[in-house]
């Protein structure tokens, strides 16, 4: 009996530590990634890197200015197309959605959210690139835009539903029509959360590579207008990382550093904003 109890205690301690180690290993991986990337990337980051065109193979110098601008342009198109649909669709689901339509739209959003990003690339290829006949900034931006939609829809609906319904009742009782109540009370109350959700979704698609492979493709030069192929940071990381040239690989690290810094800053910022919001509402 004593032996049995001692064994149980031992198992208890062992398993508790084992689960602790699991948690630690997972966290350690992230820290290692950050540290390694920061060390390597920071090292190769220069001002010319951010502003100049890529240098031809074998030549020193050069940068990824076109890819920085390219990611910006792609995100702009994505934001202009994806955010309105996601936002207003989310308002519909939170405030107007009927049972059947609401279910169907939610299901469609979940489906879009679960689509592998490479498949999203194929989709935009067939509906935009094929009819146009060539890769373009527009196609890449649309691919990212479609990926934005389900994320924005969900976060908008969630944050609007989190606003107590007594607030809308308060507005209705003052003789305000529903849509005005939604627009002047519910939306402002949910604005911080909704905006944070949008920011997070942009950070997420900013790092997407697969949907760009055969939509916006790549461009060694500055891309004029919206109908030409265009370089982007994730694409450059991919192409330069698998290249055999040392200086290209170093630039991939630098680009990776920028991209990761952007994504992590937005995520941490969002976390801080959202946790502050809650404490204010409770108080």
């Amino acid at each position: 009996m004593q032996y049995r109890n001692a064994r149980r205690k031992l198992v208890n301690v062992l398993m508790l530590s084992a689960t602790g180690i699991c948690a630690l290993v997972t966290v350690a991986i992230l820290i290692a990634i950050l540290a390694y990337l920061a060390w390597n990337g920071w090292h190769y980051l220069t001002w010319t890197f951010l502003t100049q065109l890529p240098a031809p193979v074998g030549q020193a110098g050069g940068g990824m200015g076109n890819a920085v601008v390219g990611t910006g342009k792609l995100l702009l198109i994505a934001a202009l197309t994806g955010i309105p649909v996601g936002l207003i669709g989310g308002v519909y689901l939170a405030e107007f959605g009927g049972k059947a339509v609401g279910f169907a739209v939610r299901y469609a959003a979940d489906l879009l959210n679960g689509v592998p990003s490479i498949v999203m690339g194929i989709f935009i290829y067939t509906v935009v690139v094929l009819p146009m006949g060539h890769f373009s900034t527009l196609a890449g931006g649309l691919a990212l835009g479609v990926m934005l939609i389900p994320i924005v829809v969900r976060s908008t609906e969630d944050f609007m539903r989190a606003v107590p319904s007594t607030l809308l009742e308060g507005a209705l009782a003052l003789g305000v029509s529903r849509w005005k109540g939604v627009a002047t009370v519910i939306l402002p109350a949910a604005a911080r959360g909704v905006a944070t959700g949008i920011l997070l979704s942009l950070a997420r698609v900013a790092g997407e590579t697969a949907p760009l492979l055969f939509t916006s493709f790549n461009n060694q030069y500055w891309s004029q207008g919206w109908m030409q192929p265009i370089a982007s940071l994730p694409m450059m990381i991919y192409l330069y990382a698998i290249s055999p040239y040392k200086n290209w690989q170093q630039e991939a690290w630098a680009a990776g550093f920028i991209l990761l810094a952007l994504v992590l800053l937005v995520n941490i910022g969002a976390h801080i904003i959202l946790s502050r919001r809650q404490s204010v509402q409770r108080g």
Binding site: P164, T166, L167, L174, G175, V176, T184, V185, P188
Partner: peptide
């Protein structure tokens, strides 16, 4: 509802300033 106002069980001020809360009905209407 403009003629028949209502006050609810739990206070439900809007997440706005005191002034904007009182002014809300007048502004929107």
């Amino acid at each position: 509802r403009r003629r028949v106002g209502m006050v609810f069980q739990r206070p439900n001020p809007f997440p706005k300033t005191v002034f904007d809360n009182v002014a809300y009905g007048l502004r929107v209407n």
